[in-house]
Design a protein around this nucleic acid. Sequence first.
DNA 1: GTATGTGCAAATGATTTGCGTGCTT
DNA 2: AAGCACGCAAATCATTTGCACATAC
Lengths: 137, 137
Amino acid sequence: MHHDIEKHCADLGVKMTEQRKTILRVIGEAQDHPNVEEIYTRSSALDHNISLATVYRTVNLLEGYGLIEKLDFMDGKSRYELKKLADHHHHLIDLESGAVIEFFDPELEKLKEQITKRLGYKLVDHRLELYGVPLKK
Amino acid sequence: MHHDIEKHCADLGVKMTEQRKTILRVIGEAQDHPNVEEIYTRSSALDHNISLATVYRTVNLLEGYGLIEKLDFMDGKSRYELKKLADHHHHLIDLESGAVIEFFDPELEKLKEQITKRLGYKLVDHRLELYGVPLKK
DNA sequence: GTATGTGCAAATGATTTGCGTGCTT
DNA sequence: AAGCACGCAAATCATTTGCACATAC
């Protein structure tokens, strides 16, 4: 389970501390897209010996290794989710409830590549969010 | 020229001060996507009597009225551009030079609507950025 | 053992706000 | 004249960092 990712970190030369294990676990088990404060609160519940500074440092480290992804839903706080390879998706934010719906669309993936290439570039990263309100029927 | 937008503001009940005119002009004439500091510097050059706080307040006000658009290229600063109706586009950020290429793709527009509707929502807003490096030939 | 990680508290940087004064309508 | 808008400086909020101690490998 999480051992996969811990193994992965070892391979990358990332020193695995208790704090990092906990933070990784919290992000990995999250069903939502927690911000740093939330990751800190949840991690603290599992291990008292974790500081907010460490959460920030860890989250930046993991993002640097491409193990987690930084999200930004326009509320001034960074949110994170585990980056599962081959589980690429985007987000639709419900402006009424704040709910976040994840989706994947192969057409969209193709189109992004096409557009980038057409402009003379190689796609390295990208970001797409849709903001909407529920359809009334 | 800019009088269009000033008229538009009057209709909306936005009090038109010298500072707002200047800031609007700076954003309207910008060929790039200036951040608040840059808007402030350029505005100050035209009118000494403008404070950074006013730029922040104005930029938030104008965004609220949908007259300008807030951009975020992941560098921790908000950037702005005039929202020209019927000139909708997205951004491709060159990760090597920092250049920003604007593009529009009708396929993409269609696709966004489709995806949103399929998920049971009405598209209100959205954001797409592509990050890439120049293709070597 | 040594390089690196951590907690704490202070520093930073972007953005916001309270207050007394000035300007638009 | 009355209500906003402004400049200024202080406050706020997310994030980063210096330092002395602790820990992974």
